[in-house]
Nucleic acid binder design. Structure first.
Lengths: 230, 230
DNA sequence: GGGGCGCGTGACGGTTATGTGACGATGGTT
DNA sequence: AACCATCGTCACATAACCGTCACGCGCCCC
């Protein structure tokens, strides 16, 4: 139940001891953790159950971390995950190459566990504020990312999964006008073949849910542009 | 629709791999991307559909990047685009020569994709503030590109999509007198066949909207030339 | 002063974007 | 197996918006 809500971190490292250490600490910090011992396994696992954050060791047997990162960023299921490259070297060249392939952050060994967890949190908050369990507010609407609950004026509301994610996206930046394409990217995932009008329908359902106990429509339609909240 | 709103970036590089990498990352960052493999192609493409930002490799076959830049800055269609020169060398001399020919920015290989995207964004803010989500002010009028909101003296105003874009164009350069043709290019998009008088009508509607809550007409008509704001 | 020209503007028909109810498909649960 | 919730698509209605026209006015130049 509340287990599926927790952010999912994938740890990719060829040393079992390292995997165990990170896994333990990350779980203690409230994340679900998957592990993989090499690049191929990492790709399989990541596609199977797409993580929110991926800790990727630079040195991997067979397939290099850099290549894994490239492939992760090329797949629809894993593209929006935050990738943190972990490296034993500190050369600037590697750093540059790591970021070039699309890594979102970079951490150099040796590091403290606290620092690592902090980095994971920071990236998570950036990529998935709702999944990070933050509480968002816009006007009289409150969205609890941890409990997956939405309330208006104290009244709890019932939303479907898609409506919840849609509202989450809108509330990440109250006032910002999202195009339908941007919302499809954010809520449905990239290159999912879904008609852009589907957004309209779900906005309609979301509106109905938000106004179930009365109150004005909090969602603003901007003709020719998209939708915004607040 | 919202597609026309997205900023357009032209990538000029003779290496296909480089073009693909940049293209992918820029698209992921929300830009539309065109590519060209040499200087001649770049000029053709740029005139055909004028980009907002041009990434121009220094080393190009046949025509040098510096020459392409000069020609781009000499043409009306591409003059207002931001040109970012990309160079493998780091000599100060080249940098100076690059900026002398009219390049707006300069980036040296190797660079991280994040850095590059940041540079593109920065230049875009200068060239296309509204699409970049900037907030523009002219007198007592405020236009918020991200929220698609216009207010005067604190009062929110309601504008149609075309009026919004029209006001955006005018406010990007307060005081500048725009010809009707220039506004048609900018607001309606080129290769749209629309009567130039249509501009007048929309200026009229815009005026009405801007003065809905009182205040003087902020738009100045320059007889025989066009319109300006501020 | 008169004519020409450029501009402002109200009206109007056509087009487009959006709201919304209905429907079948899907997958999980009892 | 039947039920329930949710999803994506479609079709239709409607309201907002657009582009054009026509008319009238004021400015400018002769």
């Amino acid at each position: 139940m509340s287990d599926t809500d927790k952010p999912l971190v994938l740890v990719v490292d060829d040393e079992a001891a390292q995997r165990a250490l990170l896994s333990y600490n990350l779980q203690a910090a409230g994340f679900r953790v998957l592990t993989a011992g090499d690049g191929e396994e990492a790709l399989l696992v990541a596609v199977e159950s797409p993580p929110d954050v991926i800790l990727l060791d630079w040195m991997l047997p067979r397939v290099s971390g850099i290549e894994v990162c490239r492939q992760l960023k090329a797949r629809a299921e894993t593209r929006q995950a935050a990738v943190i490259m972990v490296s034993a070297r500190s050369e600037e060249g590697d750093r540059v190459r790591g970021l070039e392939t699309g890594a979102d952050d970079y951490i150099v060994k040796p590091y403290s566990v606290n620092e690592l967890v902090a980095r994971v949190r920071a990236n998570l908050r950036r990529v998935r504020p709702v999944a990070a369990g933050q509480v968002l507010k816009a006007g009289d609407i409150t969205l609890d990312g941890e409990r997956h609950k939405v309330s208006r004026d104290g009244q709890d509301l019932h939303l479907g999964p898609t409506e919840f994610r849609l509202l989450g996206a809108l509330m990440e930046r109250p006032g910002k006008v999202w195009t339908r394409e941007a919302l499809l990217d954010r809520v449905w995932g990239r290159d999912i073949h879904v008609d852009t009008r589907t957004v309209d329908v779900h906005i309609g359902r979301l509106r109905k849910a938000l106004c179930a106990h009365g109150g004005a429509d909090p969602i603003r339609t901007v003709r020719g542009a998209g939708y915004a909240i607040g």
